[in-house]
């Protein structure tokens, strides 16, 4: 490139935008990154300044909320996985009438406000609904109960495991065909090829489902205000004692969230491919 050519490019600004490390893109991205980080810094600094101590983690309502969240979220995640992974595989491999409808249904809880999901669940599983009454007759309460929390979490969080698992199954269809051409039937192929090769996607989906379950608030407020999970307890504490008093539970949720994000990034690099 001649000097004149280089100067001409510099004058137009093309070099400045697209060359040398994409400066403009970096600056624009930095604005968002700072925006995402800033509230965390102000919250934790403010909590420290307001004398919220580590000892507050031991308050009975904090322990109770953590216990409910940490026992319901794994169950919701397990339910979503047991039924969601087969649904993902089915959607990935089959063509049928109404597939678009099922696809849309799977995504719907993601785009609806969770509180709307809670409303739907109340009309389907509330105490005065047919299903609720049958459950009552069996001694089970589907709202304002442990089961209610699981119902809400599963409704809102299950799309994560379905969508990510499906993406995984979609990406290994060619290997599946190779396996079948080598004489292996669909079941053996699923367990020896499809499942191991999609495991990264499935685990990421499980982790996201767990994180979404444990952080679920809107639908849970509608279906099971009591017993209180961590997000519900945050709301109650905020209303009664102010924003910084929520530190202990917020800290637990932020730690869990970080663990999930780091876990997904790590598993994405290691699972499914032999080094």
């Amino acid at each position: 490139m001649t000097r004149a050519h280089r100067n001409r490019r510099d004058r137009t600004g093309i070099n400045w935008v697209f060359g040398g490390g994409y400066t403009v893109f970096g600056l624009l991205g930095a604005v968002l990154a700072v925006y995402l980080l800033y509230p965390f810094v102000t919250f934790f600094a403010g909590a420290q300044g307001n004398g919220i101590a580590v000892a507050d983690f031991a308050r009975p309502e904090v322990v109770s909320a953590a216990r409910y969240s940490l026992t319901t979220a794994p169950i919701s995640t397990a339910v979503a996985t047991v039924f969601g992974v087969p649904l993902a595989y089915f959607l990935s491999r089959s063509e049928f009438r109404g597939k678009l409808l099922v696809d849309s249904l799977v995504i719907l809880p993601l785009v609806l406000p969770p509180v709307v999901g809670g409303v739907m669940l109340l009309t389907g599983f509330g105490s005065f609904t047919p299903v609720g009454q049958v459950a009552n007759s069996l001694g089970l309460t589907l709202t304002d109960s442990y089961i209610g929390i699981v119902l809400a979490q599963t409704f809102v969080a299950s799309p994560f495991v379905v969508i990510t698992s499906r993406a995984g199954f979609d990406s290994v269809a060619e290997y599946e065909r190779a396996s079948r051409s080598l004489g292996k039937g669909p079941v053996e192929t699923f367990f020896r090829v499809s499942l191991p090769l999609s495991s990264g996607h499935i685990l990421a989906g499980i982790a996201l489902t767990f994180a979404r379950s444990i952080g679920e608030f809107g639908a849970t407020m509608m279906t099971a205000y009591n017993p209180q999970t961590m997000p519900t307890q945050i709301w109650v504490t905020f209303i009664s004692r102010g924003v910084y008093a929520t530190l202990p539970i917020v800290a637990v949720l932020v730690t869990l969230g970080l663990a999930v994000v780091v876990g997904i990034r790590y598993s994405g690099k290691t699972i499914g491919v032999r080094e």
């Binding site: 290997y175 190779a178 051409s181 080598l182 032999r274």
Partner: peptide, 13 residues
């Protein structure tokens, strides 16, 4: 019937 695909499709795991 054996098949050799356009991409090698060796199982990476």
């Amino acid at each position: 019937i054996g098949m050799v695909f356009q991409r090698p499709t060796l199982f990476p795991h």
